Amino acid sequence: MSPTATAWRAGWSRGLIELRQSFTNAADLVSHFLWPVLMLITTYFLRNVSFGQSGLSLGALALPSILGMNAGMSMVSMSQHLTADREDGTLLRAKATPHGMTGYLIGKIILVAGGLVADLAIFLVPGMFLVPGLAFGDAGAWLTVLWVLVLGLVATLPLGAVLGSVFVSARSQGLIQLPVLGLIAISGIFYPITALPEWAQWIAQAFPVYWLGLGMRSALLPDAAAAVEIGGSWRPVETAGVLVAWAVLGLVAAPFVLRRMARRESGSSVAARREKALQRI
């Protein structure tokens, strides 16, 4: 077996082990359930609120949008894992192993993607009973959900790796979360984007979160619901095009940034970060 294949196999095994451990650790379990439960509560209160004269409930519009939002948030999860492992020396140990960085990244992709699927299931299964009128029984709808989710992960996970390489400590992750929350607010997740100012619509369309939400809505909502979207259309070609563009950008930038970050890692830098963290405590 080639060294690369061995690294991929080790990364796969590592990712499955870490994913399994995340469901046996109390803190990780809270993380898995807290956000889906909060989103379920939000959806519950929106289920009987109508949007204008469209006849559509905000709950029906929000549920598929939240699926897309969670896929976009995998970028933040990837960044947090990478930054934490860089700070505690895990990344340095991976670097010291032949093809260790490849195995490490494969493991993190399995961990984040697997955790995302679990979180989506925790939200979606009860949500199917809360909000009527969605196309849960249509095989074509689930196929659309699948390709949007896969393409969304390819678009966002490399970006998360880039962000995790840029920030040197877990405390700095707050600098990522605030802009992401602002982006979610203008991306039509909890309220149709056409109700927002035009400048906000243009900003939202430049990033993957809006297109992930739009793709999920196109899968699960009736065709008539497209009337509340920009241009009155689901724009599947544009959705795929923007997500592919972000995927290409991330896949090109991530290896370069990760190699540069790995070259700068050393025992002294890890020790300095640890000493700084102890001083804060």
Rank of each mutant, 00 (worst) to 15 (best):
M1P: 15
M1V: 13
P3L: 05
A10E: 07
G11A: 04
L16Q: 05
L16R: 03
T24G: 15
H32P: 02
F33I: 08
V37K: 00
L38V: 12
L40Y: 00
I41H: 00
T42H: 00
L46M: 06
N48C: 02
N48S: 11
V49G: 01
G52E: 05
S54R: 06
G55I: 04
L56A: 02
A60T: 07
L61K: 04
S65E: 06
I66F: 09
G68Y: 01
M69F: 00
G72E: 00
M75T: 10
M78G: 01
L82P: 07
D85G: 08
D85Q: 13
D88V: 14
D88W: 14
D88T: 12
R93N: 11
R93W: 15
H99N: 12
G100L: 02
T102A: 14
T102Q: 13
L105E: 10
V112R: 02
V112W: 00
V112S: 05
L116N: 04
D119P: 03
L120C: 08
L120H: 09
L120D: 03
P132M: 04
A135H: 14
F136K: 02
F136C: 05
D138Y: 06
D138A: 07
L143H: 10
T144R: 10
T144C: 07
W147R: 02
G152V: 04
A155Q: 01
T156K: 04
T156F: 00
G160C: 10
V162D: 01
L163K: 06
R171Q: 14
Q177F: 06
Q177W: 09
P179C: 04
L181R: 02
G182S: 05
I184H: 01
A185L: 00
A185E: 00
A185D: 03
S187Y: 09
F190V: 04
F190S: 01
P192E: 08
P192H: 03
T194D: 08
A195W: 01
A195M: 03
A200S: 08
I203T: 10
A204L: 05
V209M: 05
W211M: 05
D223Q: 15
A224G: 13
A225Y: 06
A225S: 09
A226L: 11
A227K: 03
G231S: 11
G232L: 14
G232N: 12
S233V: 15
R235T: 15
R235F: 15
V237T: 13
E238F: 13
E238A: 13
G241Y: 13
V242H: 11
L243M: 13
L243H: 10
W246T: 03
V248T: 05
A254D: 05
P255M: 09
A262W: 15
R263S: 11
G267M: 12
S268I: 12
A271M: 10
A272Y: 14
K276R: 10
Q279Y: 14
I281G: 15
